[in-house]
Every structure is written in structure tokens, then in C-alpha cells.
Simulated assay, not measured.
Amino acid sequence: MSEQDIISHIRGNASDKIKNFLVDRRNLFIAAGLSPKLETTFGNEILASLALSEISIYPNASEPLNQEARCVCTTRVTEGFLNGRGTLHGACATLLVDFCSSLAIIALQMHNTGFPGVGVSETMHIVFHAPAALGEELRVVNTCASAGQVVQSARTEIWSNTHHRLVVSGVHTSMLPSIPKPHTRNDATSAAKL
């Protein structure tokens, strides 16, 4: 299958480079210098179920000289998404906000600079509006208007396509990770403090 075939279902005016990068979530880890075994990472089943359906770049309505990125993903609620009440688990919803909003952030970064800047989460504010039950089709709409060199933010709305209602909304702020400082330890000083 050609690269064009892989992204042919993704609507929006984003470049093929951005679409090809974001359609394979392994690229996000590679860009961060990581190579985890995705099959064993938290939420793999949930993230693997996502389908990117749109990646668009357009002028910000409030400040037309600036750009925004919009990424839309779809998925269906399966048993692995559920809490004990049989509805979308809050941790699952938070994972969707975290991951999907990051796609919009990276799309805007790539559009502006040509390169992805994969950050780490700083804050997330989540609001639960309505439940989503087994089998419901979800549409995760993510918009990024700020993809700075240090701090980035995006907003997310998770909609039930089945019931045409807002399920969850959230705002995600991330920042580029700092380089860890080497830890030096003086054993004599440490022992004296005990």
C-alpha cells in the first residue's frame, strides 16, 4: 500500500507530510527519541482503535494572522473503554483527550516549523458532560491555536455520534521536556544527614 493510499481517507488541507506522520502513532515516540513496545503500553487497545478522519490548518478566527490546527479522530466504545457502570471510563476519556489533542499540537508545529515537537503533559482540565455506552461511536475533535517553543495547548471535545451530544471536553497544556540533570551524590554527605 502506498503512502497516498494510507492517508487517502483523511480529509483536510494539511500537507501529506503531516498526515503521514500523524497516521502512525509510532512516529510520535520516534520523534521523542523513544522506542516503546506499543503493545504493552497503557491504553494500547484504546489508541489502536482510533481512526484519523481530518487534519486541517486554517486561520484563527480571533487572530487571522495566526493559524490553528484541527484534528478529528473517531472510535467506537468497546468493553475496554468501560467503567463498572458500563459507560466510558474517566481514565479512558482522559487518555483520548491527552493523545488526540497532542495530534493537533503536533500538526500545528509541523505546519509552522516543519518539525514535530513532542511535549510532555503539564495540565489537563476535563469536564464530563454525558455518559457514552458500549457500542457508541465517538468523534474526538481537537483544536490547537498555540504551539509555542516552550508551551503548547489544545482543546478537545468528545462527541457521541450515536446520540449527537457532547460527552467530554478538555483543555490540555504540554511543554517540551527539559534535559534531566545528572544526579550526583556524595555518599559521605548523605550518610551524615541520616
Rank of each mutant, 00 (worst) to 15 (best):
K17V: 10
R85N: 06
D24V: 10
H183D: 08
R155W: 01
R11E: 13
R85S: 04
I10F: 08
Q4H: 00
T189P: 00
K181R: 14
A93I: 00
A69K: 01
Q4F: 00
N83S: 05
L103S: 12
N83M: 05
G43D: 11
V151A: 12
G170F: 01
L22H: 14
G12K: 06
S169F: 02
H163A: 13
L166C: 14
A154P: 06
F128R: 03
G80L: 03
T94D: 02
S190M: 12
V77R: 06
G170S: 11
E45I: 12
L96G: 08
L108K: 13
Q109R: 11
Q4T: 03
E137K: 06
E122V: 12
K37T: 15
L65D: 12
N186D: 15
R26C: 11
T74G: 06
C144L: 12
G12Y: 08
T156R: 02
E157A: 07
V97Q: 02
Q109G: 15
A61D: 09
L194E: 11
N142M: 10
S8T: 07
A154V: 04
D16Q: 10
S49W: 02
A130T: 03
H129F: 00
Q4G: 00
C73E: 06
N13K: 08
A51T: 09
R185K: 10
A69R: 01
V168E: 06
Q67C: 05
R155C: 07
H125A: 05
H89R: 03
P182T: 04
L52Q: 04
P182V: 07
L95P: 06
L47C: 07
H125I: 02
I57T: 02
S153N: 15
E3H: 00
I158Y: 03
L103H: 05
K181D: 13
N161E: 15
T173W: 01
R70K: 15
M124Y: 01
L65G: 10
N161M: 14
V167T: 13
S49R: 10
I106D: 11
T41W: 12
N161V: 04
C92P: 09
T173R: 14
V97E: 03
N20V: 08
L108F: 08
T123F: 01
T162H: 06
I55H: 01
T94Q: 04
E157V: 01
A191E: 14
G119M: 13
A48N: 14
G43L: 07
I179V: 14
I46N: 08
E3M: 00
V167C: 14
M1C: 01
D24L: 12
D5T: 00
H163S: 15
I46H: 03
V72D: 03
N60K: 03
G84H: 08
L95W: 01
I179G: 07
V72C: 07
H9W: 00
S153G: 09
I46V: 15
L194V: 07
I55N: 01
L166H: 09
S153K: 03
M110P: 15
C71R: 09
H163F: 08
T113K: 11
P182G: 04
G80F: 05
G33Q: 05
R139M: 13
G12A: 09
I6Y: 00
R155T: 15
L88K: 01
G114N: 09
V141S: 11
E63W: 02
L166F: 04
P177Y: 09
R11N: 11
D16S: 12
V72N: 09
Y58L: 04
W159D: 01
S160G: 06
A69P: 07
V120N: 11
S153C: 09
N27Y: 10
K181S: 14
P180D: 14
S121L: 11
